Simulated assay, not measured.
Amino acid sequence: MILPFEPYNPTWKDQFNTIKRELDKLLLPIKASVDHIGSTSVEGLSAKPIIDIIVGLEDENDLDKVPALLANRQYVYYEKYNIDMPYRRFFVLLREKPDKLGLPTCIGTFDKIPDRLNDHALRIAHIHVIPKNSENWVRHIAFRDYLRTHPNVKDEYQALKEGLIKHEWQDGNDYNEGKDAFLQVEEKRAIEWYLAQK
C-alpha cells in the first residue's frame, strides 16, 4: 500500500476548524478540549492529508461516554485498540457515514479491521481521545509545539518521512513504526522543553 503524502496545505487548518466546531457541539455533555496535532498541524511539514485531532478530557471517567456522543455520524470507533491503549479512545472520521460505505460503525475487540478501512482516501481525520492529565496528552501537544518552534527538527522529520513514504506499507501502523526511533528521541526532548516553558 502506498500512502498518500502531500506538501503542507493551508486548508488543513480550515478542515481542523470545521471538525473542531462539530466536536465541540457533540461533546458538550462532557468537559473536553479539541486540539490539532500531528504533521498537518505544523506549517511547512508534508503529511498524509488526514487531520490528526486530540480531544483532551478533564475527567478520565468520560472516556467511555465519547463513543455514544459520536455515534450515528461519520465516525468509526476502533474499540479494538482499547486493549493495547486503555487510556485512549480512537475514531476515524470518514467522508461519508460508514453504513453508506458498507462499513461498520465500530470495530469490536475481536473484529478484523475491514481492508477497505485502510483506504486513506475515505478518511478525513483521526480522533484521539485522551485524559488531559495524562503523559500521552502532554506528549502530543509538546511534540507539535516543538516542531513549530524548532525548524531544524522539523526539517529532519520531513526528510525521514520523505524516505519512508517511498516504501510500500501494509497499513498506516507499519509506516508509523518506521518513525519510532526518531520519535522516541525527539518526543522526549520535546516534553522536557515543553515542561520547562510552564
Rank of each mutant, 00 (worst) to 15 (best):
L45I: 15
E58K: 12
S33D: 06
P29C: 04
N61M: 15
I53M: 04
E22K: 15
H36I: 08
E43S: 10
K31A: 09
K31H: 04
I51K: 07
E60D: 11
G38K: 04
F16S: 07
G56W: 03
K31E: 05
F16E: 11
I30H: 01
L27E: 00
E60Y: 06
D24T: 08
I54T: 13
L45M: 14
T18R: 14
S33P: 00
I54D: 10
E22A: 07
I54F: 06
S39L: 12
S41L: 08
L63Y: 06
K48W: 12
T18D: 12
F16Q: 02
D59T: 02
V42H: 05
D52M: 01
L57I: 05
S33N: 08
S46G: 14
L28R: 13
L23R: 08
V34G: 02
Q15Y: 10
I53D: 05
A47N: 14
V34Q: 04
E43W: 02
I37V: 15
D52P: 07
E58T: 11
S41R: 13
G38Y: 07
N61W: 12
L45T: 09
K31V: 07
E60I: 15
E22W: 08
K25T: 15
T18S: 14
E22H: 12
G56L: 14
R21P: 00
Q15K: 12
V34E: 00
D24I: 06
D35E: 15
I19A: 10
R21A: 15
F16H: 08
K25R: 11
P49T: 14
P29T: 01
H36P: 05
S41Q: 12
I51F: 09
L23A: 07
T40R: 03
K20M: 05
D35C: 08
S33I: 02
E60V: 15
L26W: 11
L45D: 09
F16L: 13
A47K: 09
D62L: 03
I30Q: 00
D35V: 04
D52A: 05
I50K: 09
N17S: 11
K48T: 11
I30S: 00
K48C: 12
K31M: 01
A47Q: 10
L23D: 02
R21F: 07
I30A: 00
D14H: 03
E43I: 09
A47P: 06
D14N: 12
S46I: 12
D62Y: 00
E58L: 13
E58M: 04
L57F: 00
L26E: 13
L63M: 06
D35G: 00
G44K: 05
S39Q: 04
T18F: 10
I50S: 13
L63H: 09
T18M: 10
K31I: 05
I50L: 07
I50R: 14
P29W: 00
P29V: 03
E22V: 14
G38C: 10
P49E: 10
S39D: 10
L57C: 02
D24M: 02
G38Q: 07
R21S: 13
F16A: 07
D52F: 01
V55D: 07
G38S: 08
I50N: 15
L63G: 03
L45P: 11
V55S: 03
L63D: 09
N61G: 13
V34N: 01
E22Y: 04
I54H: 01
V55Q: 03
E43M: 04
K25V: 14
K31Q: 06
K48M: 15
F16K: 06
S39E: 07
